[in-house]
Structures are given as C-alpha cells and as structure tokens.
Simulated scan of single mutants.
Amino acid sequence: MASQALLTPATPLELQRDVQRKLGQCLLRLQQYEILLKALVAHGDIAGPPAGLQAVRDAQLACAKKKTLGTLVGMLTERHLTSAEEEDSTDEPQGDGGIWFRFRFQVGLDASQHQATTAALKELVDLRNELVHHFLQRFNIWESQGCIDADAYLDACYEAIDGHYLTLRGWAQGMDEARALMASFMSTATFEDLLVNGIAPDGTVDWSASGAVRCLRDAENRLATEGWTLLSTATNWIRAQHPDQHPQRYGCGSWRQVIHESRQFEIRRTVNIEQGCGEVWYRSHQEEASMQGNKSP
C-alpha cells in the first residue's frame, strides 16, 4: 500500500500549492532585482559640487523608488550600457566655475552583446508583467494539467529571472568597487594636488584651476594699483598667506615663470627711478577679468 501511495498522482490542491510557492519565489526574486536596480540607477551617475553630492544622491534614491521596472530598465540601458559603436554624447554638467565632481558607471559591451542584453531586459519586463497581470488567465490552476504546465513555466521563469539578478549583482559589485577605488584615491595627496592645485598625476598643470594662479588673482584683487599688481608685492603676500604655494610645486623656478607658463596674465616691465631697479607688474587678461566680473554677485 505504501508503494502505491507513492505512485499516486498529486491532488490538484497539492499541485496548486507547488505553483503558488514557485510563483511567490519568482515574484520575490523580481523584487530583489528591482531593489538592486533602483540602487544601481540611483548611484550610477552622480554629479554636483562636493557639498551637494549627498543631497543629489538622496534625491536620486527617492526618485528611483517611484519608478516602475520598465522605466528603470530603460534608464539602465540608456545610461549605463554602452556598445563599442556608440559614443557617450551626454553633456557634461556645467558648473559655475567652482569644483564639480561626477561619478558615472557604465558597462561596455560589443554591438552584439549590447543588442542581446537590451532585448533580454525587455523580455524580463514582459515576463514580470505576464506573471503579475496575466498568469491566471494563461494557466487554469484548478485543474491538474494546468498546474503541471504552470509548474514547468515557473521553473523556466525563475531560471531567467535569477540569471538577470546574478548579472545585475555583478554589475553592482563592479560599481561598488569603482566607487571604493575613487574614494581611496580622493584621500591621497595626489588627489589633493589635482583638486586644489590643478596638478595631474603625470605632473602636467591645469593652470586655470591651479592654486598658484588662484593666489596670484587673490593678490591682484587686494593689491592692484590702477589695474596692475607689482609682482614682488604679490609674492610677498602669497608667501605670508599661502606658504604652501610656491613656484617649485608647479615645476617653475620663479613666479615670473609661473605667469609665463600659465598664460593667464599680462606682464608690464617698468623702472623704479628712486630705487634704480626694474619692476614687473601683472594683470589678468582682460577677457578673463571681464568673465570674472560677470560672475561676481
């Protein structure tokens, strides 16, 4: 009798319970996928001034929580999946002349991978809608055969959903690793030099963003006489106010060389008759001075 019981087909109620369990398993995995996708979309492209980055992040998280899976998948494919044939044409954020950070995570795919991944993600959204809205229309789970068909379908669905989840988790881990590397770099003296002084890791200088030029302009604002600033007076002020700023930091032998290399200033040479020596005066290029004036409140 025991062996006969083992061979007895499951009743529709037992089959229904298996279907219910597997449907729940699929929906839970979809929710895990959606939660992870919201986090990736919210953190995958953050830009703004340093003091405002947390507010930007919080706003993007709040916005992502309101998006449907279809919208989130669209954001993922448009912003974070790129093919070798595409060029990133997204405009860079425009600041007001201050410091601006941007962290952007992207997955590079070849053309065939990009096409296949985009199609697979669309199929995932369709699958989710089928499970949530049309499952009972498709399968009659009050009959044994309907339960058997639904059971096999749900097995295939879970395999597909889980595959997408594992892929997305790998991308999210890659993004977290990139963010950790960026945070580590931002704590180094090399990053401070890049941020504060405009000195790249290879030693090249972005003069317009350099601390040396910033100091020369600060001195100019305080010490100019009829639009021109005596270089010796400016350098004395810089040594007193910013002792860490010196020409050697930028690979220059003198402040005159800094002015020459930066190409941010005009130079005028005069003779001090009383002291019997030459003097060097400087001022910002007039176009630059006009732009700075326009930015002033």
Rank of each mutant, 00 (worst) to 15 (best):
A5D: 15
T8H: 06
A10E: 13
L13Q: 15
G24W: 15
C26I: 03
L30A: 11
Q32E: 15
Y33N: 05
L37V: 06
A42W: 02
L53N: 02
Q54V: 09
V56E: 15
D58W: 03
C63A: 10
C63S: 11
K67I: 00
L76V: 01
T77H: 02
T77P: 01
R79Y: 02
S83H: 05
D91C: 00
F103W: 04
F105M: 09
V107M: 04
D110A: 01
H114Y: 10
Q115I: 08
V125W: 06
V125S: 05
D126N: 13
R128Q: 15
V132F: 06
F135D: 03
F135C: 11
L136P: 04
Q137P: 00
Q137A: 14
F139Y: 15
E143V: 11
S144W: 05
A150D: 07
D151A: 08
A152Y: 03
G163F: 05
H164Q: 08
L166D: 02
G170Q: 10
M175K: 12
E177H: 10
A178S: 11
R179K: 10
S184E: 11
S187T: 14
A189G: 13
L195S: 09
L195Y: 12
N197A: 07
I199Q: 09
A200D: 10
V205R: 05
W207I: 05
S210F: 09
A212W: 00
V213T: 15
R214P: 00
C215G: 00
D218E: 14
N221L: 13
L223F: 10
L230N: 14
N236L: 12
P243T: 08
Q245C: 15
H246C: 12
H260Q: 14
T270L: 12
T270N: 12
T270W: 00
G276D: 13
G278H: 07
V280S: 09
Y282R: 02
E287Q: 13
G293Q: 09
G293E: 12
K295P: 01
